Amino acid sequence: MNAIRWQGDSLALLDQTKLPVEEVWEDYTDYRKVADAIRRLVVRGAPAIGIAAAYAVCLAAMELQCQDTAQFRAGMARAAKELAASRPTAVNLFWALDRMTLALSAGGGGPEAIPALVREAEAIHREDISMNRKIGKYGAELVPEGARILTHCNAGAIATGGFGTALGVVRAAHAAGGVEMVYCDETRPLLQGARLTAWELMRDGIPATLITDSMAASLMAQGKIDMVFLGCDRMARNGDFANKIGTYGVAVLAAYHGIPFYTVLPSSTIDMSIPDGKHIVIEERDPAEVTHFAGVQTAPEGIRVCNPAFDVTPHKLLTGIVTEKGVIHPPFGERLLELFG
């Protein structure tokens, strides 16, 4: 299962805004439209955003290839700036753009660098899938037989290069016979859990139950949740992390009920340049995402809206961090520096 395909001179993206009702693939040859697709959540999930942006850099280079070197470099700088502005929180976007900038320079800095850019984008894509599979293996070792797992938002194959981070753990654990049930928070306001996670799990034949976000506490109190696995959009070097809005609340509930709580991420999502979660920029999205649903108004006209896309969970609420280098336990700052610093 994947949501991103490079086609040699174009990029195909699975339009995630249309799932689960329709599976629609759109072709892109213009990097500006890829930036817009990232903004509109056609492609979403930190690793997938980084991969899509890397391929968008290739599209920009192909568009500019008939320009002289100076014009080419100026155009590439504009493209990178526009792509970087598409979404501010997911660090994979900036990590991928930095890699593509280095590949451009190493390839000569002009149109002659296009093959090197394509190779680098394809490498970013392959590496993400490889990291996901390693993450799945390490995470599955944490899952006891008959586990009932809660997840929030979508950290699956379509949020990555393929296989998934949190859902990669679920997939690997299910293959080993360890999963009795996965409870999917619907994930307001855009329902990524209901629309995307439930869709992925059902396609893979993994037992799944959809719940509203407000039901998680009740299920935990009834002893129906054994552990929590969810994704990450940016982690600071002390282990604080940003993920889909509502994650912090799930973490507090898990801590109160004594339930193991894990975030699952590749190293490309760790930002060692920031000391803690206070330095993570949180994207504020369109109020209409809260006041309307499927084009239908659900709130009074003129009501004030707060719509942050993410919240920051303090590292003290984490049981562990699952990465492609293994499972990290406290003290998180020391271990992250050891492995990724």
Rank of each mutant, 00 (worst) to 15 (best):
M1C: 11
N2R: 15
N2A: 08
Q7R: 13
Q7G: 13
S10K: 13
D15Q: 05
L19D: 06
L19S: 03
E26A: 14
Y28R: 04
Y31N: 11
Y31K: 04
K33D: 15
V34T: 11
A37R: 03
I38F: 04
V42K: 15
R44C: 05
G45V: 03
A46R: 01
P47D: 09
I49G: 01
G50P: 08
I51V: 14
A52W: 01
A53D: 04
V57L: 13
C58S: 13
M62D: 15
C66W: 10
D68V: 07
T69P: 10
T69A: 14
T69L: 14
A70I: 10
Q71S: 14
A74V: 07
A74N: 00
M76F: 08
M76G: 06
A80L: 14
K81R: 14
K81C: 12
K81Y: 08
A84P: 01
A90E: 13
A90C: 11
L93T: 06
W95H: 05
L97Y: 03
D98F: 01
R99E: 12
M100A: 06
L102Q: 15
G108T: 00
G109P: 09
P115S: 10
A116G: 15
V118W: 05
R119G: 11
E120Y: 06
A121S: 07
E122C: 14
A123Y: 11
I135S: 09
G136N: 12
G136A: 05
G136Y: 02
G136W: 00
Y138Q: 09
A140S: 15
L142A: 11
V143C: 09
R148I: 03
N154P: 10
A159M: 06
G164V: 10
T165N: 08
T165P: 04
A173N: 15
H174D: 12
V179K: 10
V182G: 11
E186C: 03
E186T: 07
E186G: 02
R188N: 01
P189D: 11
Q192W: 12
L196W: 01
L196A: 05
L196S: 04
M202I: 14
R203G: 15
R203F: 01
I206P: 13
I206T: 03
P207K: 10
A208E: 08
A208F: 07
A208Q: 05
T209S: 12
L210Q: 02
A216Y: 06
S218D: 13
A221V: 13
G223M: 00
G223H: 05
D233V: 08
D233K: 00
R234S: 12
M235Q: 01
R237N: 07
N238S: 06
N238E: 03
G239V: 11
I245R: 12
T247V: 02
T247M: 01
Y248D: 00
Y248G: 02
V250A: 00
L253P: 03
F261E: 11
Y262P: 01
V264R: 04
T269P: 09
K278W: 08
E284W: 12
R285A: 04
A288F: 07
V290A: 02
V290N: 00
V290S: 03
F293A: 09
V296F: 09
E301S: 12
E301C: 01
A309N: 00
F310G: 08
P314I: 03
I321W: 02
I321F: 01
V322T: 07
K325A: 14
G326Y: 07
L337A: 15
F340G: 01
F340H: 04
